[in-house]
């Protein structure tokens, strides 16, 4: 007798959450998908209509879009690899006992707590050819952001400065749940520190590594704010990424069809990557 009423209560309790999710996630997603199949340019209402796959065809047939895709992917692979490696090193250091560790752990988190836009503007100021600290130190007036490679390095550093702490904290949490006695057992068996790192630490850290990797890959793929502030996509179009193109299609050109198509492609890409990672992770667990 009690069950139906507790069921009803359950539905009632989750209903607000479901509604909110439907209205802020499912609805915009579906609406965007629908828009991507239509011709919707706000400034040209008379041309609105169903376009089928036209937006996608235009996008995939555009050699410039292929370049954007390639450069976003390259940035993601390189920057995430470096961030993971550096983040792991920071985490290992923070895991050791040393005087003032609490203070250092707190300090490491600061970059992550600074809003990206604020951080990016600070980096831009530091990179300024006339008044920037970098020009002062090297005694030059190079416009770092006007060179293709220096601009990318600046973007990667500004992004990494903020995200390495994030990786480090996740990995540190992972390190802390590894029981200390297995290292003792390894030492008794005559294993060196290096060996223990590869054979014990890394495999046991895999769940934490996976979490950090998924988060970082997806957000590197979507990078926008740092680029928007630092280079505006320049010099030329050499630092335009997927999100930058989405922004331009939607907000500069008011093209909700074309912009919708880019963002749907980004969604698919994100899902594929997230799926691939989780699959990799699960297979591994089954073996172990």
């Amino acid at each position: 007798m009690a069950r139906p009423s507790s069921d009803r209560l359950g539905y009632l309790l989750v209903a607000p959450t479901v509604l909110i999710l439907l209205s802020i996630t499912a609805f915009p997603l579906a609406y965007n998908l629908w828009n991507s199949l239509r011709h919707v340019v706000l400034t040209d209402p008379s041309s609105a209509g169903f376009a089928g796959l036209e937006n996608y065809r235009a996008l995939l047939g555009d050699p410039q879009f292929a370049q954007v895709l390639a450069r976003t992917s390259l940035f993601t692979v390189v920057s995430v690899s470096v961030q993971m490696a550096v983040g792991l090193m920071v985490a290992l250091v923070l895991h050791r006992r040393f005087r003032g560790r609490g203070l250092v752990r707190a300090a490491v988190l600061i970059p992550w707590a600074v809003p990206t836009v604020v951080a990016a503007i600070s980096w831009k100021t530091m990179l300024d050819p006339q008044s920037g600290v970098l020009s002062f130190l090297f005694g030059v007036d190079t416009a770092w952001l006007a060179g293709e490679w220096t601009a990318w390095i600046a973007i990667a550093v500004a992004d990494g400065w903020k995200t390495v702490p994030f990786v480090a904290i996740i990995l540190l949490a992972g390190l802390q749940v590894i029981p200390g006695d297995i290292y003792e057992a390894a030492r008794v068996d005559g294993s060196g520190a290096w060996h223990a790192f590869w054979k014990l630490t890394l495999p046991l850290l895999k769940p934490a590594l996976m979490v950090a990797l998924i988060f970082r890959t997806l957000s590197a793929l979507l990078i926008f704010d740092v680029i928007f502030i630092l280079t505006g996509g320049g010099p030329g179009d050499t630092t335009e990424t997927l999100s930058y193109v989405t922004w331009r299609e939607f907000l500069v050109e008011s093209d909700f069809g074309g912009g919708g198509a880019v963002s749907v492609l980004m969604l698919v890409l994100s899902l594929v990557i997230a799926g691939a990672y989780t699959r990799l992770f699960r297979l591994d667990r089954r073996e172990g």
Binding site: T43, D44, A143, A146, G147, E148, G232, G233, G234, P235, G236, D237, T238, R248, V252, E253, S254
Partner: peptide
């Protein structure tokens, strides 16, 4: 469609001024 034209011109100028 000036915004679209402007975007192309901005890219052109940026690429020329940085000597790319």
């Amino acid at each position: 469609n000036y915004p679209k034209i402007s975007d192309r011109l901005q890219t052109m100028l940026s690429s020329v001024l940085s000597n790319l």
